[in-house]
Simulated scan of single mutants.
Amino acid sequence: MEFKVKELEGYTPQIGRLVSMMNYARKTTLDAVHGLTIKELDHLHNKNANSIGALLLHIAAVEKGFQIEIFDGRNPNEQEYDEWGAAYGLGELGRKEIKDQPLTFYIDKLYEVRNRTLEEFRRRDDTWLHSERLWDNQPSNNYFIWFHVIEDEINHRGQIRIQLKMIPFLS
């Protein structure tokens, strides 16, 4: 892997740069969780915490939500909400529903969602990336939305790294 933000084959120049940033963020997330057990993925530091597994699934859920909103032009349907709602919202529902899965489960979900994003990006160009839209009732564009996907992952990767330092049986 190169540590460069650059154009990538199969994508327009700006989308390629965005993908290279997304790839790096994902690599560092996967590096942070490499080899974790179910016990480590499910560990809760307190009654209000989110587990590492839940944070991984949340990363995928945020990207999935933007796929539905941006690529499909709609809100999640009932089936999608049933599948992704706990991961998107986390909290009590996430603590209840997101557990007892091996690391491969979370990694497969991350890859499944990311593969669709990459396929969709190959169909679009830099004009689309800069297209304006409203997000959270504010002026935005597609570039910002996908930057936010990266930002969200990096934020939660930081939480994961902190949690790893706090797991008593890892110290």
Rank of each mutant, 00 (worst) to 15 (best):
P76D: 07
N46P: 05
D125M: 03
Q163M: 13
E97N: 13
K39P: 07
I154R: 09
D42L: 09
R95Q: 15
G10A: 07
N75M: 13
L57P: 03
I107R: 06
Y143A: 14
S20I: 07
V62K: 01
V149W: 01
M1L: 09
D108G: 05
W84R: 02
P102F: 03
I38G: 07
I38L: 05
K39Q: 15
I59Y: 02
R122I: 04
T12P: 05
M1K: 10
F147C: 11
E2Q: 13
W146Q: 07
L170A: 08
E78A: 15
H130E: 15
V113Q: 03
R116Y: 13
G65T: 05
I59G: 01
L8E: 13
I70L: 12
V33C: 00
G91D: 13
L57R: 10
D82M: 10
Y106S: 01
D31C: 04
H45A: 14
D125Y: 06
M166W: 08
V113S: 11
E153G: 00
V33H: 00
R133S: 11
V19Q: 02
Q14E: 15
N48M: 07
H45D: 14
K64Q: 06
S20P: 11
S171I: 06
N141I: 03
L30C: 02
A54I: 00
W146N: 00
T37Y: 10
N115E: 15
S140N: 14
H34M: 10
I154S: 05
V5A: 10
F144Q: 14
E83Q: 13
R116Q: 14
D42E: 10
R123E: 15
G73Q: 11
E40H: 08
R116N: 13
E7P: 04
L170Y: 10
I150V: 07
V33D: 01
E153A: 01
E132N: 12
G65C: 03
I68K: 06
Q138N: 13
E119F: 11
Q67A: 08
L56W: 03
M1F: 09
R161C: 13
R26I: 03
A61E: 02
G35D: 04
F105E: 12
M166L: 15
Y81D: 14
E9G: 08
K109T: 11
N77P: 05
H43D: 10
Y106C: 02
T28G: 06
S131Q: 15
A49V: 08
D125A: 06
S140W: 11
E97G: 04
E132L: 05
Q67P: 03
L57Y: 13
L110S: 01
G158W: 04
K64N: 05
R133D: 08
G73Y: 01
R95I: 05
Y111P: 01
V149R: 04
S51V: 04
E151T: 07
Y11I: 05
F66S: 03
I70M: 11
